[in-house]
Every structure is written in structure tokens, then in C-alpha cells.
Amino acid sequence: MAAGGDHGSPDSYRSPLASRYASPEMCFVFSDRYKFRTWRQLWLWLAEAEQTLGLPITDEQIQEMKSNLENIDFKMAAEEEKRLRHDVMAHVHTFGHCCPKAAGIIHLGATSCYVGDNTDLIILRNALDLLLPKLARVISRLADFAKERASLPTLGFTHFQPAQLTTVGKRCCLWIQDLCMDLQNLKRVRDDLRFRGVKGTTGTQASFLQLFEGDDHKVEQLDKMVTEKAGFKRAFIITGQTYTRKVDIEVLSVLASLGASVHKICTDIRLLANLKEMEEPFEKQQIGSSAMPYKRNPMRSERCCSLARHLMTLVMDPLQTASVQWFERTLDDSANRRICLAEAFLTADTILNTLQNISEGLVVYPKVIERRIRQELPFMATENIIMAMVKAGGSRQDCHEKIRVLSQQAASVVKQEGGDNDLIERIQVDAYFSPIHSQLDHLLDPSSFTGRASQQVQRFLEEEVYPLLKPYESVMKVKAELCL
């Protein structure tokens, strides 16, 4: 049975990233139509530049190519590739079939990587351009969430054990800070992308030097003109047959890092959902379990974690691919890159769409948070109580021993009897502590235990987050809708 299948058929496997999760716009960027249309555009740009620099290419040939950029006979191309065992030459023939007058000058002087690699770089750039505003929107939604809850005390956790208090907004800023680093890295790697350009079979530009009869300047002009037509500021000066596969490492490393950030955020949300302090959106008709109707599973956060793990592992592909590119190139890269580049971007696209949807509907339960604080705060307040007693004339050592005994009794009630923490009640009825009984409410005010959390939130948002989001103001209103 021949390899390949009808990918629109229910009898043929289709990647869930495309069929179930990723956005239509990201799927289109990695589609065959987008790819092969870009090949034709690159052939047109090459012909236009070659004509401008004096090669015998007519206006009629150029116009014929322009008129057929979208006229792609995919069936013919597939048949040609089956016959020739070469995808680029299959599309040269297919393009030439609908451009008979231009057929002889299509791909003039070029090698397969002229269309293959340059198209990949265009796709990487455009895919990054799709991700950047999506990530900015996630940051914006979380920034709104953090600002609104900047002063809401909550129990902090280290080692997932109760620690000092923080605020809900401050905790959210930990998430935002990681995503801001990801946004900066995505922008950097996007701006650092260079075009492969017009380089020939081993990167020496020998074929173009021959076409222009040894004119170095025209060869350099050709490279520059096509690079500018493709919208790049610069091209690699040095290439082998391909652009260095280190570029793929750079791009997928940034995406993998984004995956790590999203995994951490969504894990926190899942843990908070278990504590009943916070939940992701839950639709009115949504079913959490087929057997347990009360369940409210954090399905979206779980999906993000599941896909983020996949995204983090994909960076190993370009690392290994770059390491086995012998001399000017081997074909070890080809099949692998067809999979890992598309999957990385479709996965990143999915987790950003999902995280935006989550961040637009996060639900906080202040009463649950308050109750958990009441359970733990008495123990945390013991040092403040000791200091207040010393100020009232008591002995630190005597007070410490009193607190120690009462704390152990209260802990026994919590752990052995399943009761509430009654340390404060014990202190309130103990005559030894009568000098500070009137101060206990103040000493137990949760806001006095959150330090500068709310001020940190305000400063972080104003100095770091809002300036970073400013270039994306025009796209901030787009909502994230999930079908599944």
C-alpha cells in the first residue's frame, strides 16, 4: 500500500493539533497551500530580480507567473513527485505547466533550498508574528487579574506546605514575570531571523556568478533584492546548502521555554482548584465526569500541561538535527523538520489560546482563602504575639514557653481530632496574655502579614508589564474561544 493518505478522510490519521486544537490561522501558515504558494512567490521574486539585473526574462513571463501564483494543481504535483521522487522539481514542473512561456526560467540558477529553506524562514517569521500578540493578550488578562487582587491576602506555599502570606495578585505576578520573559525572547528570536537568500547549491553562489558572467556586484544585488522582497532586513552571508540548523534550535528553545512557563502556571491553577481557592472557567453544560456528576475538573489547565510537556520535548529534535548536518548538509534534517517545526508552533498556539481562555474567566473564592488563612495564621502570628507581650512588660522566655504549650495543644486538636485551630481562643482565655487581649485582632490582621506584596504588584505592572504590552494595544480586544 502506498504511503500517505487522504487526510480529510475519517479513515486516515490526522494530527489532533490540526484537527482538534490549533487555530485556523496557525494551521494555514503550515498548510501545503501556504507552503507551495510561497515557493511560487519566491520563484517570481527571483525572476523579477534577475530581470532587473539584466537576464533575458520578459515582462510577459513575469506576468504569467504572477497570474498563476494561486493556480496550484495539487493532484498534478503529487503525481509528479511520485514520478520524480523530488518535491521541488515536482512543483517546478507543475508551475511550468500553467506558465508555459515562463517554464524555462522558473528556478533559474537556484537549488531546492532556495524555495525550501527560504519558505521555512518566512513561515517561522509569520508563525512567530501570530504567537506574539496571543502571548501579549494572556499577559494582559493576567495583569488585569493581578491588579484587581493585588491586596487580597492568601496563604503562600513553599514545598506545598503553608508559608508566609502573600497576595493573590502577587502570586499571579510570578506567572506574568515568566511570560514577559517569554514574550521578550519570542520577539528577540523573531527579529534575529535572517533570510537564507540566493546562495546556490553549497552556499557559494557559483551558479549565479556564472549567470551574471562573473559580476560579483550583481550577485550581491540579486541576494539583497530577493531578501528585501521577502520582507527581511538581512540575509546570511555564510550558508551551506541550507541555512544553519542552529536557527531551528533557537526558535524551538524559546517555544519550549514558553511551554515550561505555561505548565507551571496551569499546575498552580490545578492545585488551587483542589484547594477550592480558584477555578478555571466551567461552562453551564460542561460535564466533569461521566460517573461523578459533582466533579469540576480543571480540564483546560490539564490540557495545557499535557501539550506543554510535548512542546518542551520537541527542542531535542533540532538539537540532534543540527549535530548531524555533515559538511554542507545531509538530508537527516528533512523529514524531522517537516514534523517538529509545525508541531512546535501548533502546540504553542494551542496552549496560548487555551491559557487566554482560562485567564479571561478565572474565578476566585475569597471566603475559602480566608478560612485557610484562619487555619494557619495563628501559628504564624506567634512571633508577633511574643513581641507584643514583651512590649507590655512580659518575659520573652516565659511567653515563648506559654505559646509553645498552647500551640501544641491547638495542633493536637487540628491533627488528632480534625478540629479547627483554636490557638487564639486559648490565648484569649489565658490570664497571662490579658495585657494584649485587646491587640489580638490587630495582630491577626492578614494584611499585616503580606509585606509589600501589593506595592510590588503595582510597581511591576507599571514599570515592566504595561510598557512591554504597549506595541500590542491594537490587538488586545480579541477574545479566545474554545470549541473543545
Rank of each mutant, 00 (worst) to 15 (best):
L55E: 10
L443E: 03
E79Y: 14
F157R: 02
Y294I: 03
V262H: 02
R234N: 08
L331E: 02
L222C: 09
I57V: 11
P133S: 14
L155N: 01
S257N: 07
T94M: 13
P366G: 09
E277S: 05
F379H: 13
V390A: 09
K170T: 00
Q51T: 05
Y114S: 02
L44D: 03
Q164V: 07
F433S: 04
S412V: 15
D420A: 04
T347F: 14
D182E: 04
K224P: 05
A480N: 15
N297R: 03
D317V: 06
G200Q: 08
G203H: 00
K233Y: 10
L275S: 11
A230V: 05
R329H: 08
I339P: 01
T38R: 03
G5H: 05
F145R: 04
T242Y: 00
M387P: 06
D398W: 07
L179M: 15
V138H: 09
D32T: 12
Y466W: 14
Q285W: 13
K479E: 15
Q456I: 08
P435I: 06
F327W: 03
I269K: 07
L135K: 06
L406F: 08
L183M: 10
V189D: 07
G109M: 00
P162E: 01
Y432E: 09
W39M: 12
C305T: 08
S257I: 08
E401F: 02
M387I: 08
I385T: 03
K276C: 02
E401M: 13
M389R: 07
I139G: 09
P133N: 11
L423W: 03
S434V: 07
F232V: 02
A392W: 02
R374P: 03
T382P: 00
P100C: 04
F379S: 04
G214L: 09
D87A: 01
S395Y: 07
L135C: 08
I369R: 05
R188E: 04
K246D: 07
E463P: 04
E280P: 00
A230R: 05
D117P: 00
I373L: 13
F30Y: 08
R452I: 11
G54V: 02
P162H: 06
Q325C: 15
E64L: 10
V390L: 03
K233W: 07
H107F: 00
I351V: 12
L135R: 01
D59F: 12
Q285E: 11
R40G: 00
F232N: 02
S474Y: 13
F232A: 01
G96P: 00
K66W: 11
C483D: 14
I249L: 09
K402S: 03
A143S: 13
A47G: 08
T244R: 07
T119K: 04
S323M: 10
V138K: 02
D32R: 12
D191C: 09
I269S: 02
G156R: 00
V254F: 10
H442K: 11
K199M: 00
S447Q: 12
V368I: 03
C304M: 14
E283D: 14
L152C: 13
L275Y: 10
